[in-house]
């Protein structure tokens, strides 16, 4: 029973939470805000992608630090696969965001600090993958890419975390120029939004676990 819970429990929880978010995200009543209206429901799926991406980048960053402190190749593989999975969620986040933006703001892309931050971090991690593929020696590849990963993550963290708040002209909630503020995220929304984020993070972690296994099998 204990074995079952540890190995499958969190995966089942992840799937259940996502199913719950998909079903109740469409069923519950959302506040009817100007401009956004019913498309507010995209919040449950679109924003969850970014949380998952960020969580996986954080995992990648932590394992890069672990690698530099002990030089164990296992941790480098985890850092690599976490970055790849995070990029996947980032692309999903951009696609869902673009569709949402088309129906509320009228264009696929707007010049907004949050969008630019997302695009820049994806480019940085594509650069990370290119850097990895350019080095042949495994140990050297692991070391150099870990250094780049740490350097990039910290700089991008500052960019994404602080600069949009300084600029204060984002169309996203919490900034001037937006029709929705975070305080208006009333309780019904919270009851779907937080489980959705948790569910996607769990499924993202599961995806990471599977990717690491595939990586290890392909190396044998």
């Amino acid at each position: 029973m204990k074995f079952f819970l540890i190995n499958y429990g969190w995966k089942l929880l992840g799937i259940t939470l996502i199913l719950y978010a998909v079903i109740f995200g469409l069923l519950i009543q959302v506040p009817d805000l100007p401009v956004i209206h019913q498309s507010l429901r995209s919040l449950f799926y679109h924003v969850a992608m970014w949380f998952t991406m960020f969580f996986l980048f954080l995992i990648s960053f932590v394992f890069s630090i672990c690698y530099l402190s002990g030089f164990r190749l296992k941790e480098d593989i985890l850092a690599l696969e976490a970055a790849k999975t995070a990029v996947f969620f980032g692309i999903l986040g951009i696609i869902t965001g673009m569709i949402w933006a088309k129906y509320t703001w009228g264009t696929w892309w707007v010049n907004d600090p949050k969008l630019n931050g997302a695009a820049v971090s994806l480019i940085a991690y594509f650069a990370y993958l290119v850097l990895r593929s350019s080095i042949d020696d495994i140990e050297k590849k692991a070391k150099i890419s870990a250094v780049y990963n740490i350097f990039a993550f910290v700089l991008l963290l500052i960019f994404i975390g602080v600069l949009p708040r300084l600029a204060q002209d984002s169309l996203h909630p919490g900034n001037k120029g937006s029709t929705l503020t975070v305080t208006e995220l009333d309780n019904t929304i919270r009851w779907v939004f937080y489980p959705s984020v948790l569910g996607w993070i769990l499924v993202g972690t599961w995806l990471l676990q599977l990717r690491v296994r595939i990586h290890n099998l392909s190396k044998k």
Binding site: I123, A124, V130, L131, Y148, L155, L156, I158, F159, L163
Partner: peptide, 10 residues
């Protein structure tokens, strides 16, 4: 070039 663009952009 590709490594520096995303890091210099902020």
């Amino acid at each position: 070039a590709i490594l520096s663009f995303p890091l210099v952009l902020p």
